[in-house]
Design a protein around this nucleic acid. Structure first.
Length: 451
RNA sequence: GGCCCUAUCGUCUAUCGGCUAGGACACGGCCUUCUCAAGGCUGGAAGCGGGGUUCGACUCCCCGUAGGGUCACCA
């Protein structure tokens, strides 16, 4: 393809605002975005709201907000309902030329009308070369004279799509493969109105673990982009993950910024079969991005996550600050802060721990005398720490003593006294979060327990 | 059911006729270690079946089989 042609590439993403933006929709939009940007083409967002009954403003807003959040920008945005006059013009033209006709329907059921506009099917074979699926042929006879408008004033999906794609100069139609069966109908209409045929690329669907199409009805909220936004996933990670679902660069690389994706993307490397959405892999990838976040950005995200959890929001500001690095490497996405907290993972940060005194003894030695001596020594060491001691400062003060006396016999009782749990974050971090007086108080309680 | 699409580890995938079938996620083991998490090392795990074509098929063709999509006066 030469440079002149590339400049004329026009892609579009055309969602209907009848529900929250679907992750599959995001991926379709992403592939359109990558292809358009890579080739210096134009990208159009077209809200397909010809069904006024089902279309909702809130969903239109959700679509726009979602893309803004993802950082995917469109060059133009249109609402199909505002283009009604144009659709009607083409409809009238079709009827005038005898290529469509007003059909009187009998046996009017509920919701059906006496008159609809039907396309006069030439009953021929339609073939097209799909960029990802290859050559596809259909015999359109079985489609019959399909309906293209409810009335001369109410054009339907197929007509509106074809007219808009034509009028907007769309060169490439990149969409989900659930549209393959719509393509022959649309090609028939194109030929009837004398529109050129765009290049089609039908991308495989994103599947649920049961390998069926991901649908809100069947699979719940987790099919919507906003779910992942609310769970605290990073937009760059979501884009990266979705791009790799059904596409690959041909080598082992997996982590790509959007800019790199624009550079690397190629239609030829899009997979032909559907791909299961694997939340585990998304989690892994999101963590990769969390880890690479600049300190200040991470801090902003973490503070927001901490404040959204009632139990943790009660902590003072400096305690929250101390908690950031500790929490950061135990989560895959920010919503996990709340999930872990609700599981009771961090109760000891806000409540005094309760435990049996036997738990204070390090299981490899079970030495009561040593444990007691060590707790007394620890109290002395911690009392001397500055009030705002960081985990590093606390470690520097305690570690030498622990190494001298045997780490297990010092650190295990310390951690148990502070957390009351078999599994917890390291004791120095706990000291830094709960503070010196509270730490000493908990150690005194431990001492009292074993006496 | 008709039509259409698809078919490599559990999942995402590499392979464009030469493969001891590679990587990633997840999982197991080991190391590190006061516990957990993280990290490092490591292990198990795949070509749907049958025919062709070919010196040689995971790769090409055909037939089965399986899965998916779609069959609105929705988009």
């Amino acid at each position: 393809m030469n440079k002149g042609e590339k400049e004329h590439i026009v892609c579009r993403f055309a969602p209907s605002p009848t529900g929250p933006l679907h992750v599959g929709g995001v991926r379709s939009a992403l592939f359109n975005y990558l292809y358009a940007r890579q080739n210096g083409g134009k990208l159009i967002l077209r809200i397909e709201d010809t069904d006024i009954e089902r279309s909702k403003k809130e969903y239109e807003d959700d679509i726009k907000e979602s893309f803004a959040w993802l950082g995917l920008e469109f060059d133009e945005t249109h609402k199909q309902s505002e283009r009604l006059a144009i659709h009607k013009k083409y409809l009238a033209g079709l009827i005038d030329k005898g290529l469509a006709y007003v059909s009187r329907e009998e046996g009017t059921e509920a919701g059906k009308r006496k008159e609809v506009i039907r396309f006069k099917n030439p009953n021929r074979t339609v073939a097209f070369d799909d960029l990802v699926k290859g050559h596809i042929e259909f015999d359109t006879t079985e489609l019959g004279d399909f309906v293209i408008a409810k009335s001369t004033d109410e054009p339907l999906f197929h007509l509106a799509v074809v007219v808009d794609d034509f009028e907007m100069g769309i060169t490439h139609v990149i969409r989900g493969e659930d549209h393959i069966s719509n393509t022959p109908r649309q090609i028939l209409i194109q030929d009837a109105i004398g529109a050129p045929r765009p290049i089609y690329a039908h991308i495989p669907l994103i599947l649920a673990p049961d390998r069926s199409k991901l649908s809100k009805r069947k699979h719940g909220e987790s099919v919507s982009l906003k779910y992942y936004r609310a769970q605290g996933y990073l937009p760059e990670a979501l884009i990266n993950y979705l791009a790799l679902l059904g596409w690959n660069p041909g080598d082992d690389r997996e982590l790509f910024s959007t800019e790199e994706l624009i550079k690397e993307f190629s239609m030829e490397r899009i997979q032909k079969g559907g791909a299961v959405f694997d939340i585990e892999k998304l989690n892994w990838m999101n963590k990769e991005y969390v880890t690479k976040l600049p300190k200040e950005v991470l801090s902003t995200y973490m503070l927001r996550a901490i404040d959204s959890v009632e139990q943790l929001s009660r902590l003072t500001d400096w305690k929250k600050e101390r908690l950031i690095p500790v929490l950061a490497d135990r989560i895959h996405y920010f919503g996990q802060v709340g999930e872990l907290t609700h599981l009771g993972e961090f109760d000891y940060l806000t409540e005094t721990p309760v435990y049996a005194k036997e738990a204070l003894l390090w299981k490899k030695e079970l030495d009561l005398t040593k444990t007691k001596t060590n707790i007394i020594a620890l109290i002395a060491l911690i009392e001397k720490l500055p009030k705002d001691a960081t985990a590093e400062v606390a470690k520097a003060a305690i570690f030498p003593y622990a190494e001298e006396q045997g780490k297990g016999n010092v650190l295990w009782p310390l951690r148990m006294a502070l957390s009351g749990k078999e599994k917890s974050i390291d004791p120095f971090s706990i000291v830094s979060v709960i503070g010196i007086p509270e730490s000493v108080s908990r150690l005194n309680y431990a001492l009292h327990l074993i006496e």
